[in-house]
Design a protein around this nucleic acid. Structure first.
Lengths: 220, 220
DNA sequence: AACATAAATTAGCCTTGTCTAAAATATATA
DNA sequence: TATATATTTTAGACAAGGCTAATTTATGTT
């Protein structure tokens, strides 16, 4: 059984390793709002429990056991986010903090029942994949919107680092997961993009925001 | 903001005071699976926070603020139990432990959304009333014992017309307000009922007496 | 009244998880 | 290569919340 703090550290490591990056003590601390010295202690503890490999002064890697545990947490987090948005009517920018608490409730029966109740969703409201009960995630052909060519037709698949201000901005511009756009123009001087949708007004996005949006190919 | 342990103690006090009984340190400890000495410390802490009145060596009472906080916990607990049973298909005997965890999730928006999602239920799967967002509890779901079915588990809530001889009779049979029984058998020919309690001997009541007793559903 | 017993409290210790400050290590630069 | 800097780890302190053991208070009995 893991404590809440252990779970938080495990999830932070998993999140940092996600993008192919490596997980450093200071990054974990920053992500959790604690100090590096505290993280060191927890890393040792999780290593002793066989959840990760921690070579002092070098990086951290997840063991198979740690990977499994981390994926269970991710699964719970994203299932709860889905529940909050789809059933309780939360905005997609209001769910993170609450899901952060709900994910620590430990009951396999609860998790699996919720999964079934929601119809085994494979992606959460932010477009991130939900691991199934065996830890399998559905993979997709996604890339940053910023790298798309003019004329490409794409579906918004996910938000890379979903911060509240960013989600709110997207909400204001009427951009959400699952929506389909055509890249209509790119400003050479600042890299901003103009998107067209089938109906409704076009939207202009800064290069910075476009780099945060992950898209998948969409049929015309 | 209350810690989880503070919430647990507050709820224990509230539960003990429910039946008109008084809350003693050792009872709280027993209920929480801790030691009396630990409880004493927490009682002092909650008293300092203005949630209860604790006269050392005498009892504990809830302040208005404490009552409000306790009712919010009860509300969350029972709403989650309802959700688990009605939506996720849990058995009524499987929900307590999970609801015990879920009730500590702090988000008013979550609680109120859940309440609305469930259609503002007024009683949980055990028949216990669910306080509304202002702490109001629905007048209880009471009915004459005489109309109960064999197998029902009920708490004695009131005596309809309390005459001295009747009260004396009940006293002799060891029956009082707040006690919980299971209706174990009904004699067809005269309508008399046999009641079983958790410990101790069974009691047989005439149909006349059973008509005088008002009961409410009780959890096992 | 005096004493025995039960319950509550206090005192002191332990574990967990955090912190700060100091020491150790790795890395970049002159 | 030597050294400056950034990062990590270690050492020691502290608060929360639990425990045991000893003390205090209330209550019941002779």
């Amino acid at each position: 059984m893991l404590t809440r703090s252990e779970e938080d550290h495990l999830k932070a490591v998993h999140a940092l390793l996600q993008d192919g990056a490596s997980a450093f003590t200071k990054d974990i601390a920053e992500r959790l709002g604690t100090k590096a010295s505290s993280v060191t202690v927890m890393l040792k503890k999780l290593t002793d429990k066989g959840l990760l490999k921690h070579e002092p002064y070098y990086g951290v890697k997840l063991t198979g056991k740690g990977q499994t545990a981390a994926l269970r947490l991710v699964r719970k987090h994203r299932l709860w986010e889905t529940f909050l948005v789809e059933r309780l009517g939360f905005g997609w920018d209001e769910v993170h903090e609450v899901a952060e608490q709900l994910e620590h409730v430990s009951s396999d029966k609860l998790t699996d029942s919720l999964d079934e109740y929601l119809g085994h969703p494979r992606f959460d409201p932010h477009g991130d994949p939900i691991p199934d009960r065996n830890g399998k995630v559905q993979s997709r052909n996604i890339k940053p919107l910023a790298g798309c060519l003019v004329g490409e037709r794409v579906r918004i698949a996910a938000v890379k680092d979903p911060s509240d201000p960013l989600l709110q901005l997207l909400d204001e511009k009427g951009i959400g997961i699952g929506m389909v756009f055509e890249v209509h123009a790119r400003q050479a001087f600042d890299g901003s993009l103009e998107l067209r949708r089938k109906q409704g007004p076009p939207s202009t996005l800064s290069a910075l925001v476009a780099a945060q949006l992950l898209v998948e190919p969409a049929r015309p």
